[in-house]
Design a binder for these strands. Sequence first.
DNA 1: CTTGAACTGTTATACCGTAACATATACTTC
DNA 2: GAAGTATATGTTACGGTATAACAGTTCAAG
Lengths: 186, 186
Amino acid sequence: MPEKPQHEVTAAEDPALAFQTHDHRHCVGTMLARAEAVCADKGLRLTPVRRRVLEILLETHKALGAYEVLDRLAADGFGHQPPVAYRALDFLVTHGLAHRIQRLNAFAACMHTTDDSDAGHEAVFLICRDCNALAEAPGLRLRAALEAAAAGADFAVEGAAIEAIGLCARCRAAAGEGNDNAGVGA
Amino acid sequence: MPEKPQHEVTAAEDPALAFQTHDHRHCVGTMLARAEAVCADKGLRLTPVRRRVLEILLETHKALGAYEVLDRLAADGFGHQPPVAYRALDFLVTHGLAHRIQRLNAFAACMHTTDDSDAGHEAVFLICRDCNALAEAPGLRLRAALEAAAAGADFAVEGAAIEAIGLCARCRAAAGEGNDNAGVGA
DNA sequence: CTTGAACTGTTATACCGTAACATATACTTC
DNA sequence: GAAGTATATGTTACGGTATAACAGTTCAAG
């Protein structure tokens, strides 16, 4: 599936790649290596289940439901019950290796290389409503704007979920090309 | 509970009020009147169930689960089954009279008076993790920053959920004041 | 090798949400 | 005002999401 290695670049470095054909093995390798480094650093155990869950999430730039992850775990000989998946997912989310996408009740691998703070790094999730691909854009400016908005209510922000729904470039092109179907509009 | 009518001001005009003691009847009255105006304007029917659901949401500056709303509806002689609540909630959300808070799988009354576009107005939700109160801050700047971040991935934003978790001023004060215990509560 | 902590696995259950269908109410149109 | 249509309400039944509680296993350290 992964073709056209346009560059030795991952979706971590260029969020737009998440919506394009790219050498996805490179994303996987980079992110898995980073996960190992992070765990080694902090004395965390990237056990077989956890590692496998991360691999499953990394297989696609989409968000997966916990039960979808569970099915794949079960197929690989791990447990068949929900807590098996939820616990591994919680571990990954807690340590910033994955994210929960509230809007979809689903999970996605983290696509940042810059492991600033633990899970505290802010990100914006861009969800294409057509192809369901998901990109993680840097949210520094967003965070600043959010702090400003919160200050008006004397509220101390500790964490935020910023999730946008819309259309990626590829799906916009596909929609515009030759027909006028399915509302491009808001 | 509503006391100290500090001003004739609603939480719609000053989000910080959501976290403070204020004349809440004023919020309720204003928002209910606005809902009636909006519905009259657009030929929508603010039926008894829908109106009651809005009242229930307006009773508190917190987000309520659909089943919590349902329980109160049932107690008032309306239907006891989930769709009764979900349909009324969907109506309110669709027409911008209420919001769904993804993070909590819950719903809250809209606290904007400026009914710009239908449900399209952008807002930031500030959720106090201690007292669970919820405020709705204007998100114009946020939206701009979001568009900018999305542009980097050539992504067209159609809608966004921006939800921050943190501590309101009151709970921060309570936490700092002499002890480190939890829950000053409602 | 024993002890305690962390991890994996299971059963059972609770919460969130919707599809499909039946009934009732309101809005036309004649 | 009767007939017909659209909208709203109510029900049963079910599926997806998530967690509590407990049992067994593996790991790390003394």
